[in-house]
Design a protein around this nucleic acid. Sequence first.
DNA 1: AAAAACTTTCATTTTTTTTTGAAAGTTTTA
DNA 2: TAAAACTTTCAAAAAAAAATGAAAGTTTTT
Lengths: 168, 168
Amino acid sequence: MELKEAQEKFISAWGAIGTHWGINRTMAQIHALLLISNNALSTEDIMSQLNISRGNVNMNVRELMSWGIVHKVLKFGERKEFFTAEKDIYKTAIQILKERRKRELIPILNLLGELQSENIQESGGEHFKKVVGDIHQFGESTNKMLEKMVKADEHWFTGSLMKFLVKK
Amino acid sequence: MELKEAQEKFISAWGAIGTHWGINRTMAQIHALLLISNNALSTEDIMSQLNISRGNVNMNVRELMSWGIVHKVLKFGERKEFFTAEKDIYKTAIQILKERRKRELIPILNLLGELQSENIQESGGEHFKKVVGDIHQFGESTNKMLEKMVKADEHWFTGSLMKFLVKK
DNA sequence: AAAAACTTTCATTTTTTTTTGAAAGTTTTA
DNA sequence: TAAAACTTTCAAAAAAAAATGAAAGTTTTT
């Protein structure tokens, strides 16, 4: 297999995974392209390699930067901006967990907390409160677990957590 | 707040979360509705409560059943089918992890394995193989971790794993 | 201060995903 | 075995999401 073919397979698969996790295909493909690129790429590099428009690249690259997994790189003597992806996959994973915790878990925990503290007397209210309470508790546990993982250094995964989970 | 209002907020929030995780809004809302319903619901109950068509209910309920988090219930003396969601949130979470592992993680691990074993000589190939290799290794670790979690009983989360992660 | 080199925005178009609902299919009842 | 009660399918419509590209905006150079 040629390098180019292998790269295309990888980019395509990464894009497909993204769609399964609520990430748009192009954003995931740009991430994949930057991961496998040795050097930082310009907007035009990305446009031509993925065959997409300037506006599309701009939007998705900025989204990737807002997730903290792609960074702007300025090269001496060059006016244009280049982009590079964090290459340490553990750091990337933790960064994504961190952001999803902030953007998704915390808000739902707040809602669940509010719903739980409502004074609902109607019939059926008990079952509702039980379900909400259970999910809230589960969410809080997940939240604590993520806090722990995110605070640890990037070696938590291969370190003691993995030893605990896999070997024991 | 009235029960109905609280329920609507919950269903709506559950639907929104779904979309962030690659699950269609309606499927997540049906799941939410079944979670907070004390009794199993018929297709028509779901249609009227969520204001959606018969075909839509049928499709999404079957999808939820394929994930193993919603079950068909037959009532004595009734011809129609009723549906109920697994109410244990830990079991539900594990079931989802199990399915996603099978449907998404395993296939990508297979691809990464293939790409890794390719004999690529071209320049740039080394960086590509390093990235693919790193992700493959990360995926294998995740896979092992999930295997462990899924094999354990439903109390892993509050049990020793949580003690390990949160308290230590 | 004008031109050049670049980035960002966003109304419009395109693509993709989701929903509808009527017809076809199936099972149960009379 | 015919009708009734129900479930499933799927082509078409609708809705939602993503992509385009040209114009506007910004920064740097001359």
